[in-house]
Amino acid sequence: MKRKGWFIPIAVFFMCTWFLIMYEQSTNEPYLAHTSNLAQLPWDKDISEIQRVYFSAHSSSFTAERVGNEWSIVSPIESDADSTYIYNVISQFTIPGLIHTIETGVTNPSSYGIFEYSPCITLIDQAESEYTLIAGNAASETTSYVYSPLTQCVYTIKTDILNSVSSDLSDWRSKDYITFVPEQTSKIDVITAHTTYSLLPNLESTDKPFVADGLSPMEVEDIINFLTVSKVSQFIVDHAPTHIISSYGFNTPTVKIKLYDLAGNAQTLSFVKIPNSINYYVLDHSKGNIYKV
């Protein structure tokens, strides 16, 4: 009786082992963790090593370049970039969240929905080495195919990673349009149709960094707060010609602001109140750019 008692657990053990072996044999997609079954991974770089990023999708393409810790858009326009946004994009692809290797030695990945015009991101390091991933069709509800020309492999990747990269250039651009650092500002001129108010550094108090004749401390504080927090909500026109500038009403702006740095250089901004709105159109005179803020 005692010997028969061992039969059931031994049988269960062998049955579980058999099912495990059959399951592993039926799985023909090697995981990236099983590196012995894979071609060399396409990329393994630190974010700080990336010098340029190229992205194209839906007939749009643009290039961002890093100088020090800051990023700039260099094509199709020249503009300051949103360094935090680009950092977040790069962090998704420096060590890409690839899931499976689907096929190796692929020279024509069109059967996976991958063509020359498909969404594509390229990271370029300081040695000019390039890593490109080209997006293809959906592989499942949560994954998509991607192709690496570097390894000639088709992988799957989480679709959310691909969707996190915007094809709208404005998402890549910096929303800061005002160069304002209180400690590096020698004067602020606020010019209306009838009066000019000059805000000067307050040498008697650090609580109220600026004072102005004709304005209350609360009004001065409101101006400083606006200059500190105001951001672009929409990019209207870059390098606008004279007739466009005039059409937005900048010949007679609601208010004009001049910010002077310690060397006496000024940034001039004109604001036009948008009717029935809390927003303004703003013209950066040095660039000829029009924004909505």
Results as ranks from 00 to 15, higher is better:
residue 2 K to S: 13
residue 2 K to F: 10
residue 4 K to P: 00
residue 7 F to P: 04
residue 8 I to K: 14
residue 9 P to Q: 08
residue 11 A to M: 12
residue 17 T to A: 15
residue 23 Y to P: 07
residue 26 S to C: 03
residue 27 T to P: 01
residue 29 E to W: 14
residue 29 E to A: 09
residue 34 H to V: 12
residue 34 H to G: 06
residue 35 T to S: 09
residue 58 H to P: 00
residue 64 A to R: 01
residue 68 G to Y: 02
residue 69 N to A: 09
residue 70 E to T: 06
residue 71 W to S: 05
residue 71 W to E: 03
residue 71 W to F: 07
residue 73 I to Y: 00
residue 74 V to D: 00
residue 77 I to F: 05
residue 85 Y to A: 06
residue 89 V to S: 02
residue 92 Q to M: 14
residue 100 H to A: 13
residue 107 T to M: 09
residue 108 N to H: 12
residue 113 G to N: 07
residue 116 E to S: 10
residue 125 D to A: 03
residue 128 E to D: 12
residue 129 S to I: 08
residue 130 E to K: 15
residue 136 G to F: 05
residue 139 A to R: 02
residue 144 S to Q: 11
residue 148 S to W: 05
residue 151 T to M: 09
residue 157 I to W: 05
residue 158 K to Y: 14
residue 160 D to C: 11
residue 163 N to E: 09
residue 164 S to K: 04
residue 165 V to W: 01
residue 166 S to D: 02
residue 166 S to R: 11
residue 167 S to R: 09
residue 172 W to I: 02
residue 173 R to L: 06
residue 176 D to H: 07
residue 177 Y to Q: 08
residue 179 T to P: 04
residue 184 Q to V: 00
residue 194 H to C: 08
residue 195 T to S: 06
residue 196 T to M: 08
residue 200 L to R: 15
residue 205 S to A: 07
residue 207 D to N: 15
residue 207 D to S: 13
residue 210 F to N: 01
residue 211 V to G: 02
residue 212 A to L: 06
residue 212 A to Y: 00
residue 216 S to E: 02
residue 218 M to F: 05
residue 223 I to E: 11
residue 226 F to C: 09
residue 226 F to W: 13
residue 228 T to M: 02
residue 230 S to I: 04
residue 237 V to G: 03
residue 244 I to N: 04
residue 246 S to L: 12
residue 249 G to S: 08
residue 251 N to Y: 09
residue 251 N to W: 09
residue 254 T to Q: 10
residue 259 L to C: 12
residue 266 A to D: 04
residue 281 Y to H: 10
residue 282 V to L: 08
residue 284 D to I: 04
residue 289 N to K: 05
